[in-house]
Design a protein around this nucleic acid. Sequence first.
DNA 1: TTACACATGTAACTTGTTACATGATTCA
DNA 2: TGAATCATGTAACAAGTTACATGTGTAA
Lengths: 193, 193
Amino acid sequence: MSLRYALLALLRVGPQSGYDLQKKFDTSVGHLWHAPDSQIYPELRKMEAEGLIEAEEQVRGERGTRRMYHVTPTGDAEYLAWMNGPLSYARVREPASLKAAYLEAATPEAARAFLEQHIAHWRGELEQWEAELERIDARATPMLVDRLAVTPEADRDRVVAFKRLGYENLVGRARAEIAWAERGLELLDRFSG
Amino acid sequence: MSLRYALLALLRVGPQSGYDLQKKFDTSVGHLWHAPDSQIYPELRKMEAEGLIEAEEQVRGERGTRRMYHVTPTGDAEYLAWMNGPLSYARVREPASLKAAYLEAATPEAARAFLEQHIAHWRGELEQWEAELERIDARATPMLVDRLAVTPEADRDRVVAFKRLGYENLVGRARAEIAWAERGLELLDRFSG
DNA sequence: TTACACATGTAACTTGTTACATGATTCA
DNA sequence: TGAATCATGTAACAAGTTACATGTGTAA
């Protein structure tokens, strides 16, 4: 759904191969929108078929080829249409809330383990996102460096500020999940104590 | 993924037809795990084929039939295994964060509209969930009444408390999203002002 | 010559979305 | 007799998951 926009965002910085995109994905836009490697190549082919991107085949050695993709005007327009149009929201699907709402069916130990794992999970995410925020402030992530290089100086602060805003949402989400699970643990204490 | 557990949670209260489940879904467990009507019947058939539930066909009038499903011991064991086992977390896919991180590509008006719609969206969800929390506290939701009726009195407070916990997570999420988007609007003000 | 990075995928499956299709029963 | 509710689905598609498959270039 949003995968193509994540890829277009990366490609708008400059031409790249599927391999380049795949390598960069997890350490950049993949923080916000995960996609496995196996999804990227087919999506690029699909985008090419729809005229959003074009490939230039480069010869590597005697038989190998590399497809360097770049964004077409159509792709650029599609990206801007997504950016300027309304976002469609996915319906709520929260397995952790679902489980919590019926937690009386779990053993007290399992209930505790569930909330502790929830905290551990979101602490792990939080650490990564906070580290990324620090790198953004230092303007030190590889993708951001490349992006700022193709951005007029007057716009650079905005680019950095919006990137920060995106990650701040994730950080807020993680903190809310952790605070909630901690309240859940207190609830368990009240019932067992 | 979690749909079958949502359905098992409803069916553990007592036997119900696909139609019953479909009608109740949106106003109960569907708040936590959405599923369209068209997904429920096939999932019930799949669960039946796997032995988690069984149907008793009831004759309606001269030709019509109704399939009343109930949970089998296998289904009960599967439900408890899900409840007592670790939850698997979906990878992060946050279209709003993705869009925010590249919001410099949007026009200032579109950026503002995006954040305002984000607030409106989550306020809508928040209202529903807070209303549901009030009904839970009053022990007034139809499903909760049915569930409490089949719950030993000593366990009823726990049932209500966990149901509350599940919805509190959603409320926390919605509040975090709203607070974030409001900070985003302030950011826009700083850049336009 | 071997290991590692470069490079591009496919296949089978599950889950979820959107729109449609059909008929029975009951009550005003 | 017509509308609302009861009742059960299918079909086509889109998106995501998991595991696998294949080969090249380069530098130690």
